[in-house]
Amino acid sequence: MLKSHNLKYIAFIIPALVYVSALSIFPAALSVYRSFLTPGGSYTFSNYSALLHYGLVKALIDTMLVSIGALILQLFLALFIAMIMVKPFRGNRLFSSLVIIPYGISTVVSAFIFSQIFSAVGGYANSFIVDFGFRPIDWVATSSSSLSVVVIADYWKNTPLVALILFSGLSGLSPSMYEAAKTDGAGAFRRFFSITLPNLAPIMAIALLIRGVSEFNIFALPLVIIGYNPPLITTLIYEFYQTSSTTIYYSYAASTILLFIILGYASIVLWKGGAKSYER
């Protein structure tokens, strides 16, 4: 319900609205429009058909695999961290600081570090492996090992955020629920599966939404660590953008596809319950 005197206050929001329209909605629309143009300016679908030649489908599948792998790994680690963070114990502050630090570290820096850990030849990970008497692994030899490296590198920068979200969810759970479960004789595992997990589910969904979208847009990490072998959807777009003034139109087409995947994903998640928790 917008009363007329509210209009006065909407005026304060207008600069921010204009700003996001000009710098986000307008460029995105431009991408969509130009994806149907040739460099000469006539309409075409050839940008999309060209994408198929350049491995769009594989890039999408790989992106999906990385996203799912990263989400699982991060959720798992973050749950452990959050459960430790809510416990009062000596060293809690130190522990919290230690696990939050990577949140502040530049993606490029963390990409650089992990490229040193998982270098093609040698590297710190291989030092371990060789120390234990195994044969060293060429991490970037196959596309699946390359993708695994990206997934592993991603935990460092992004788990802290997920842990913080889950932490806020856990601190909201009332201790009395646990007391009741204890008196009912529920063991630690039971308590985890019948109290913690179900109560944490809504906030986990939110974490999944936020992280899921960013995972799909993951860019700096694969670019620095594995370059374009194999390309993910974002690095594919970037490669087209860099290559020539013709291929830039392919990047518009790939951008459009990425855009609609994200929009679809976000609206599904929002529809399925997210909207309700927003409205409250």
């Binding site: 996001v20 460029p27 974002t234 830039i248 951008s255 994200i262």
Partner: peptide
């Protein structure tokens, strides 16, 4: 605002 925030950076960055 948060929905707009989900717009992939690379999609927006190239036209900009």
């Amino acid at each position: 605002f948060f929905l707009i925030n989900m717009m992939p950076g690379i999609v927006v960055a190239i036209p900009i």
